[in-house]
Design a binder for these strands. Structure first.
Lengths: 111, 111
DNA sequence: CGTCTATGTTGACACTCATCGATACCAGTG
DNA sequence: CACTGGTATCGATGAGTGTCAACATAGACG
């Protein structure tokens, strides 16, 4: 699939040195995934759900149509921030802790 | 100016609960500022510079034209991630720690 | 198999954005 | 004052993106 499960966190804190072109593109793609209000809300709904996991049906009331929700979830998946799994009728999304941790660590300003 | 110095960090870790529409829009705007490779590189150059501060002339070799660099720095300023100050001939940009810290804290997955 | 519900995909459209050349603004220096 | 170098703004353009309606797919159930 397009799950981008191979995305590997890459970078030390920004204070540690300039990003390479490559690293900048990788990290920018992750930030871009969270750069839309609808995606941020979907992401927060999954992350704050019990076990960091939620069914699409539990989180899809964000004010846009169902295809749009699906589209945004795909973006979050491709960015490596979420993973998805089908269990019977429903599809469950859960957060990918390593990737999120990499973003958080990059913005850590402690020297 | 448009410095958006009034942008206030708002949000607890995503694991703590769903974001409101308003908070989602605020945070999305910050993430969007870092969602471009050129901006990320500019930001990392400033953040990794001595004192978290750098002259535009020190950081503008990112492979795009001077107007484009200026445009991206403006975006980072408007998002509240950087502040700027003119000192004589040169303009210096420095990181805005509270805003960056808010983004980092939001992605903290500890429960 | 047929049907129903949940989710993903496609195609189209309006809108935003990154980029550049040209130009304007600002502060020294002569 | 004119001139020069650093930075910001403007206008245009091509690429990218969020959104929806329509359709497709997948599993459950009879």
């Amino acid at each position: 699939m397009l799950d981008a499960g191979t995305v590997v966190p890459c970078c030390p804190p920004i204070t540690a040195g300039e990003l390479s072109q490559d690293d900048a593109e990788k990290m920018a793609a992750m930030f871009k995934a969270l750069s839309d209000p609808v995606r941020l809300r979907l992401f927060s709904k999954v992350a704050s759900h019990a076990g960091g996991e939620a069914c699409v049906c539990d989180i899809s009331d964000v004010g846009v149509s169902q295809p749009t929700v699906s589209h945004h979830l795909k973006k979050l998946r491709e960015a490596g921030l979420l993973t998805s799994e089908r269990r019977g009728t429903w599809v469950y999304y859960k957060v990918a802790p390593p990737v999120v941790a990499a973003m958080s660590a990059m913005l850590d300003l402690r020297t």
